[in-house]
Every structure is written in C-alpha cells, then in structure tokens.
Amino acid sequence: MPVAAIVDNYRGERLDALANFHGNQILYLGWDHHLMFCSPVALPVPPDMPFGKVIGELMPGAFSLHPEFGQIDWSGVVWHLNGEPFTPDMDKGLAEQGIDHKSIVRFATPGLDGIGGSGS
C-alpha cells in the first residue's frame, strides 16, 4: 500500500522529477565535520558537468568562508557518493560516473576537523 487513499491506485505527482529542473539535476554537497555550514547544500547543475568543476567552482562558492577551506589537500580527500566510498573522475561528467539526480556527494578532509577540532 504506497498510500492510504479514498481512491484506488492513487498516484502522487513527482514534484521533484528531473524533468522539472530545466535541464539541471540537483546535487547535494556536504563537508564532513564542518558544521559551521549547518547542513549540506543543494545546487542545480548540468548532468554533464565534469567533476573537476565541482571542486573548482562549486566548492569555493559553497564553503570558502570556512578558515580551513584554503588548507584542503584535494588529493587526500575521502569521498562518499550516496553513502558508498567513491573515487571521482575529474574529467568525466557527473551522470556518467553515477552521480544522478538528488545524489549526495560527501567529502572528509583528514587532519582538518573544523574550528578548534570541534567538528564545526
């Protein structure tokens, strides 16, 4: 029973279907142990955007206000895609490497654990 309804076979409108985002998909980005950013962020991005742009453009826009942002060693970053360990390919598009609509990309920066090591 996918819903309790007064009619049979009720089907809800998919309000966030990929087709509703004008050619973009939604990408969520979260920086582990840096909760000065209170939650992960949501961004509309083209599905064929190369991952390199996530680091080069989206990350600075979202996270550069943090004093540790400039110290990130991007080669040592630990990545998760929808909860699974993941190694991004900088040149390939997002969709091509399995980062589909409403996927979560999380990154941890070993050695950088937030303001005074507090996770903030």
């Binding site: 979260g30 000065m36 992960p40 826009g61 206000l65 303001i115 903030s120």
Partner: peptide
C-alpha cells in the same frame, strides 16, 4: 557549539557577519 559561535563572532567583529551563501539540502 561554543567554538562555532566564537568563529562567527570573529567574523562579525571583522565586519563580515557570516551568512551561508548556498541554499540548504
């Protein structure tokens, strides 16, 4: 939580009150 507020206070005192520039998930 205190370290977070202290960081935000430093930013405020520097004339750059922190606001998150990106919409949340």
């Amino acid at each position: 939580y205190r370290p977070r507020y202290e960081q935000w206070r430093r930013m405020e005192e520097a004339g750059e009150r922190y606001y998150n520039p990106t919409l949340p998930m």
